[in-house]
Amino acid sequence: MTDVAQIWSYLSQGPLLWLTATLVAYGIGDACFRAANQLPLVNPVLIAVCLLGALLWLTATPYATYFEGAQFVHFLLGPATVCLALPLADNLPRLRRALLPVIAALLVGSLAAMASALAIARVFGADAALLAALAPKSATAPVAIGIAEGMGGQPTLTAVLVILTGITGAIIATPLLNLLGLKDWRARGFAVGVASHGIGTARALQVHPTAGAFAGLGMALNAVLTALLAPVLLGLFLP
């Protein structure tokens, strides 16, 4: 009989184990989400991340080892972003009709996200490097990291703040927008895409196809606007 430790050492070297674990953990998260009647607080990403985090800690597995398997899932983020062209193209006539609301909501949402985050962090005594990492957090991860690095922010910290912002948006959007009594799926989706990039867009797609299309548009537009505005706003809030 082969030793369990031997099997473990074999499996822990290849990508199969952690790729499977990622799918299983997300499957569990998704099942919980459905069992809870799609309650936003029972976020499948958050559940999967906590399960895998606990598993890595219990087995003393370094993140680099985990990522060797998980990178195949991670890689699909790029193609998935390209695929957002489908809901966008399907909704192109409605996007054209909503040009003015889109521009106005983009400016207000993007500025509100950056200015309020910088102001609050400043009150808590954040230094210049921390503010630089925080400013672009509503933009999609590769853009945010590029912007933050250009302003003296640390890439790892920026990635953490970007992901936390996305999960926060995905969780609070539905209850918040219901509280405000907003029924326009375009307005709801677009604001979520601007404030919480791809993770918010994934959530919007779960809720309504129109919301998903406008969220994808909001994410794309805010990637550009954040790149232009973040350095200006950071200059205003530097200690």
Binding site: G109, M114, F124, L161, I172, F190
Partner: peptide, 29 residues
């Protein structure tokens, strides 16, 4: 050690951005 400040910054700014963005969209529409 900036956990509390950053948590508040992320929570409040994300809520504010979603609310302000969606209300602006609906208002201008």
């Amino acid at each position: 050690g900036m956990g509390l400040g950053l948590t508040l910054a992320i929570l409040c700014s994300t809520a504010l951005a979603i609310a302000a963005g969606a209300l602006t969209f609906a208002f201008v529409a």
